[in-house]
Amino acid sequence: MGISPFLAWLDDPHAIGLERVQLFYFYTPGRGFPEPDALAKLAGERKVVLHCQSAGPADPAFIRALEACVRRIGAEQVDVDICGPAGLLQACRKALHACGVGEARIRHELFEFR
């Protein structure tokens, strides 16, 4: 599934609550689908805060943005959905736990490239 359901949500004119969403989009340059610029356009139209991450979840820029997001919303209020390969899921979980986000606030879907 990957990001496809999120793209459909962005494209749904009846979708509500998107202004509360922050999307951390991890991608490999040259292999992104959608391309970060195209996703930024869609996200901007729907007031979604987009963080494009090509350096991976260990990137200090990702950690800082995640910490700021959790601080603003509150670790007990944030809801997180992660979709990606096992290594990404583990790294994001570790970063979220370091921010005080409990496991009950984290949902995941394993997605492996073939």
Rank of each mutant, 00 (worst) to 15 (best):
G2S: 14
S4Q: 13
S4C: 04
P5N: 12
P5V: 10
A8D: 13
A8S: 14
L10I: 06
L10K: 08
L10S: 02
L10Q: 11
D11W: 11
D11T: 11
D11R: 15
D12M: 14
P13K: 11
P13H: 06
P13T: 07
G17R: 10
G17T: 08
L18S: 07
E19P: 02
Q22H: 13
Q22G: 00
Q22R: 15
L23E: 01
F26W: 03
Y27T: 10
P29K: 03
R31I: 04
F33Y: 15
F33D: 09
P34Q: 13
E35Y: 00
E35V: 00
P36N: 10
A38L: 05
A38C: 01
L39A: 06
K41W: 10
A43G: 06
A43C: 14
E45H: 10
R46F: 08
K47R: 15
V48I: 12
V48P: 01
V49C: 11
H51Y: 06
C52D: 07
G56N: 08
G56K: 07
A58V: 04
F62Y: 14
I63R: 13
A65T: 00
L66K: 05
L66I: 06
L66N: 05
L66Y: 12
L66T: 03
E67Q: 12
E67K: 07
A68P: 07
C69S: 10
R71H: 13
I73G: 05
I73D: 08
Q77H: 11
D79P: 01
D79I: 12
V80C: 03
D81Y: 15
G84I: 07
P85E: 15
P85V: 12
A86C: 01
G87S: 04
G87I: 06
L88H: 02
L89A: 05
L89T: 02
R93N: 09
K94S: 04
L96A: 00
L96H: 00
H97I: 07
H97W: 11
A98E: 07
A98C: 01
V101A: 08
G102T: 09
R105G: 04
R107I: 09
H108E: 09
H108V: 00
E109K: 02
E109F: 11
F111D: 05
F111I: 04
F113N: 09
F113E: 12
